[in-house]
Nucleic acid binder design. Sequence first.
DNA 1: CGTATTTTTGACCGTTATCAAAAAGGGTGG
DNA 2: CCACCCTTTTTGATAACGGTCAAAAATACG
Lengths: 212, 212
Amino acid sequence: MLSQVAPSEDLVFFRPHQFLARENEQPDGLFHIQEGWACRYRMLSNGRRQITALYLPGDCCEPCWALGRPSTQPVVALTNIRAKKAPCRMSGALFADSRQSFWKSLADSYERQANWLVTLGRKTAMERLSHLLLELFERMRQSGLAYGQQCALPLTQMDIADITGLTPVHVNRTLQAMRARGLVELQAKWLRIPDLGILREIAALDATETLA
Amino acid sequence: MLSQVAPSEDLVFFRPHQFLARENEQPDGLFHIQEGWACRYRMLSNGRRQITALYLPGDCCEPCWALGRPSTQPVVALTNIRAKKAPCRMSGALFADSRQSFWKSLADSYERQANWLVTLGRKTAMERLSHLLLELFERMRQSGLAYGQQCALPLTQMDIADITGLTPVHVNRTLQAMRARGLVELQAKWLRIPDLGILREIAALDATETLA
DNA sequence: CGTATTTTTGACCGTTATCAAAAAGGGTGG
DNA sequence: CCACCCTTTTTGATAACGGTCAAAAATACG
């Protein structure tokens, strides 16, 4: 029901809308995402939803689980996903070799959250969208999944709204304004950023923000 | 210039507006705050500021520094501060005894950030303020610094605005509305919450949110 | 006391939300 | 290959929440 076990025993697959983790559950392992996207989120009354983390190919989902407390927010697949499941006993020697990469995942995730606090608290709609598109492109690029200045972006405008704290309607209108100014090309789940430098300026990003 | 060393060698003091850490600097130790409040933040153009973390008595400032990367956001004292400085060599045995408490600090901090992403992205002004006041009261209470249903709250309304992503004017008006409804009493840097349950409902908090 | 900071008030405005519906796109089965 | 359906994107009209600017009142501080 949750996932189908593949030929290799620690390889797992998910379909869109399937849960990688439910609220208040102690996951028994970390997922190393090999293909596909997932997100962590929280629902509020009135159907309001806020996405609090995105997991892309190459990402660890979810570093915090190794710190030994139940996940307080569900994680769900946004696309088809192929992932490798690794037990997460922090105290054990299991992270002996992957320790560096694990801590990097955790620190990256922590820092991204801090960056998004700034964006959600203080930035305009266009600044938020610029931040998101730049971050996603940069993360895809670092995983070798960008081609020139383009990459896949399998999010609906509603997903984007739930990440940026906007409404789908306003995301649509703001994206149109950005397209009209030649800042981004975004169609058919494919993103192209003609000029990274210009978009960075529009995103009002701090010079120190790596977006990794 | 940064701090004056006290009788005990690892005891340090700060005054309001003094930096505990500057942007892009690798702090050489963690602070265990004994008294006073501090915050981490980022400035944007137009003087916009967003506070991304608060450090209260009993808190570790800043868990992420032990993960071995420079702090990307400055940390500044909001009040007079007394703190104990401990070297942060994650790999060493230095955290042997405090390891549990360190990871708890890190996990708490991570989770609080995730909770605030939801609040900044999707909640109204009154929900944001309720969340903040409840969280601060709960954290003070867990440190034994609450008395009945009240505690110290040494923040200006401008600080509160920079935490909640609002303007000082709107914070003021929303607090007045909350006072008028008897939800909170807040004056002279002192907070009283007549009914925690009611305020929790107004904050639109998830049942799982501990606010610790 | 005098001064700087903080809180409060008022008038007005703008960005973004809301509601509703039409157009476009994508997948499936016949 | 087309017809159908569902999801997603787009458009329009209107409203609201919170922002902005300015100044007065209250408070804290030395």
